[in-house]
Write a protein that binds this DNA or RNA. Structure first.
Lengths: 162, 162
DNA sequence: CCCCACAATCTCGATGTCAAGAATCTTGAC
DNA sequence: GTCAAGATTCTTGACATCGAGATTGTGGGG
C-alpha cells in the first residue's frame, strides 16, 4: 500500500531526520494529484476539442445562467488567472466561435463575454464527459469517506478563499 | 461555512439539475487548493531565490542522498515533467551555480546532475521555510483528520501511480 | 465644470512548458 | 563482428501564462 509520496517522505526522513516532513503526506499528495487530474481532464475534453483552460472559462459563463455572459473581470475572479491570460483565452474562444465579445451598455470601458449557442453545446457536452470520468476516479471512495475528504479540503482551503 | 466551491456547485445544480456534480466537491477543491499551494510555495521560497520548479529538482537530488546526483532521466521521472523541461531547468540551475553537469562514467550518452555545496545549502534552507509554512496551513486539522485526509488522497492517487 | 484618483481592459516582453524529432550511444540477435 | 532497435539527452518551435504598464473611461470633490 506504499505510494510515490510514501517513498519520497521516507527518503527525506533518512536524509533530514532533524525535520518533520509529515505535512507532505497531505500537501505533496494534493499537488501531485492535481497534476494528474489536470492531465486526465485534458483527455476527457479531447473529444470535444477543448483545453481545460478553455473549459474553465466556458463553464464559468455556463453556470452563471441565462444570458450566459460575464465581464472579463468577473471571469478573472472566477478562474484565478490574471487579466492578460483572460484576454488571451477569450481571444481564442472567440476565434473558435464559442463566445462573443459585446460592448457593455452601461460602461464604455467595459466588455461582456457571452456564450454562443455553439459554445453552450460544447460546454454542456464537455461537462458530461468530465463528470463521467470523475465519477470513475471517485469510485474507490465510499460516500462517507468522500464527504469527509471534501470537508477536510474545505478547511484547508479556507485561508485562501479571499 | 460556505466556500467558493460550494457556491460553484450550487450554481451548477441550478443550471444543470440533470447531472450529478457532486464529484466536484472533492476534485474541484483539490485543483483549486493545489493552485493556491503553488503560489504559497512561491512566496515561501522567495527569500531563498528559488522557484518551486527549481526546488523540485534540487529536492529530488537532495533526498536521493550522498553523492546527491541523478541522471536527467531520473529527474524527469521524479518530477513529472518532460525531458525538454528538465534540460531547461538544469540549465538554469547550472547558471545559478546550484548544480553541475558531469559526464556519466559508464554511459557516454549519459549525464549526471550533481548538487553543488551551494545548492545543497539552498535546498536545505528552502525546505525548512517550506515546512514551517506548511505546518501553519495544516494547523487547522487535527492529527487524526490529517491522517484520514492523507489516506483518502492516497486512494485517489493510486490509479495514477503507474 | 474640471481634474484626478481609480477602474476595466488590453498590450507587450519574458519565461516556462510541452511535443516532436535530432543526435549520440548501447545492447543483443544473428 | 555488425547492424538494427532501443535508450538517453538535447534542440527546436509553438504556445500559454504572468507581470507590468499603457489606454481608455468613470465619478466625486473642489
Amino acid at each position: 500500500m506504499e505510494d510515490d509520496v510514501d517513498r519520497l517522505i521516507a527518503a527525506w526522513e533518512h536524509e533530514r531526520p532533524d525535520v518533520d516532513v509529515s505535512p507532505m503526506h497531505v500537501l505533496s499528495r494534493v499537488t501531485r494529484l492535481a497534476l494528474h487530474l489536470d492531465r486526465a481532464r485534458k483527455e476527457a475534453f479531447a473529444d470535444h476539442d477543448l483545453e481545460p483552460s478553455e473549459f474553465d472559462v466556458l463553464s464559468a459563463l455556463r453556470r452563471s445562467g441565462d444570458p450566459y455572459q460575464l465581464s472579463p473581470g468577473q471571469l478573472v475572479h472566477e478562474t484565478l488567472v490574471t487579466s492578460g491570460t483572460m484576454t488571451n483565452r477569450v481571444d481564442r474562444l472567440v476565434r473558435k466561435g464559442l463566445v462573443e465579445r459585446l460592448p457593455d451598455p452601461d460602461d464604455r470601458r467595459g466588455v461582456q463575454v457571452r456564450l454562443t449557442p455553439t459554445g453552450r453545446a460544447a460546454v454542456d457536452g464537455a461537462l458530461d464527459a468530465l463528470l463521467a470520468h470523475e465519477k470513475q476516479l471517485l469510485a474507490g471512495l465510499g460516500e462517507r469517506e468522500a464527504g469527509d475528504l471534501a470537508a477536510s479540503l474545505r478547511t484547508l482551503s479556507r485561508p485562501f478563499d479571499r
